[in-house]
Amino acid sequence: MNLCTDQLAMMVAGEGQLLSVSNMASDPRSSAMVSRAAAYLTNHGLAEEIYLMQPDLVLAGNFSAQATVDMLRRLGIPVAVFNQAYTLEDVRDRLTQMGDVLKQQDQAAMLVAQYDAQLATYREDVTLRPRAALYYANGYTAGDKTLAGQILTTAGLFNIATEAGFNADGIIPMEILVMAQPDTVITSRPYPGASRSEEVNAHPAIEALRRTRPDAALTSSDWVCGTPFVLQAISDMVDLRRALQANTP
């Protein structure tokens, strides 16, 4: 009943072990496993529908609605709660935890090994780090204590949010962002239907920053959850870094 546990479960679970995933798992904007999610029943994270499925175990995130989790427990259904991943290390731990919970330790261990091996290939020494800024709707940015911040740093980019004093998520004033003179601004992919919150990404000051830089980078569903898909995000960012470095001799 949580986007991230859904994806971890789909990776780790054995044949017939997983019954239903949340509707978020089929949303191409958030989920990296849309096609695989189609093979399962869809739930909307509501206690009533989940209870009627009579599962042996419910997998929830620590940001899932607490009232729903409590009610399912009252109804006698065990709920395993997974904390949100804030670091690249957390991804391994969540995979292992999912393996333990679903009694698929071997499958989880294999995924962890693959993950570690691939992650190691990205950890090369970068002497010249291009300056990058994460800039989401409403002016949110992410510092080094977040998954997105770690993706940037691992890919050899310098996150200007750390320079501005952000550790976790926070709103960075546009003025600070402009004064920091990032080499690239990474924004989120806009949702359908307009919103004022996303307008900041089209602000003339941000456009001016982008004008002379390579194509604006966008975060995708690979960034959302602490799953091995973050490797894809890192790889995209490595490509961006190479493009930036090719552009500025």
């Binding site: 002016g139 359908p192 239907g193 307009a194 004022r196 919150s197 602000h203």
Partner: peptide, 18 residues
Amino acid sequence: NPFAANEIVFWMMGSLAD
């Protein structure tokens, strides 16, 4: 758009940010 609902407060209270 998931951000739209958060903007109710902007339309009720007003802001000149950005």
